[in-house]
């Protein structure tokens, strides 16, 4: 099997985006309806709340094909369920400590607050994460058979 492609033009990263129903998913919709351009590298998983995310799904994505993960939630204070986004933030902060111990750079997992009216910000964020992850190359785990 060929060595996984390192940083190069031909590497197209896969981004898995876990988006909350009330803000970021709707923001992504707005990006579409207002014809914002962003790279097609992102696959969206629709959640009711960023607070519904368990890190096991983020890790599973990174080990099973994703090169980057975006978790999108409502801005602080705007959570439809009051505090799901704050809880997601605590979980992501722990996740980053764990990833650090395993030698995985923290830029693989992005947590961003994008509201329903921020279609432009959604498109910008996807452009940004795609470019960053493209530079980083394929996820550390995903091509390894022994993890």
């Amino acid at each position: 099997m060929a060595e996984p492609a390192k940083t190069n033009e031909n590497f197209e990263p896969r981004i898995v985006a876990f988006l909350c129903h009330w803000c970021t998913y709707t923001g992504a919709d707005l990006a579409g309806t207002t014809r914002q351009q962003y790279p097609p590298n992102v696959r969206v998983v629709h959640l009711m709340c960023s607070g519904a995310i368990d890190v096991v799904y983020v890790l599973k994505a990174l080990m099973d094909g994703a090169d980057g993960v975006l978790i999108g939630g409502c801005h602080p204070g705007d959570c439809h369920y009051q505090s799901g986004n704050f809880k997601a933030r605590r979980r992501v902060s722990i996740l980053n400590k764990v990833l650090e111990q395993f030698g995985i750079p923290r830029d693989r997992v992005w947590l961003r607050w994008i509201s329903a009216s921020e279609g432009r910000k959604f498109a910008e964020t996807i452009r940004e994460i795609t470019a960053t992850v493209k530079d980083m190359g394929p996820a550390e785990f995903k091509e390894q058979w022994d993890v």
Binding site: V55, V56, M63, G65, I94, F102
Partner: peptide, 28 residues
């Protein structure tokens, strides 16, 4: 699918995922 994608897949699978997840859930 895992074996086809990677060419080889260790069994049992997801040993590292197990430890990493447990670290996330209980280390605090």
């Amino acid at each position: 699918a895992w074996a086809m994608r990677k060419g080889v897949q260790k069994l049992p699978t997801e040993t590292m995922l197990f430890h990493m997840t447990r670290l996330n859930h209980m280390s605090s």
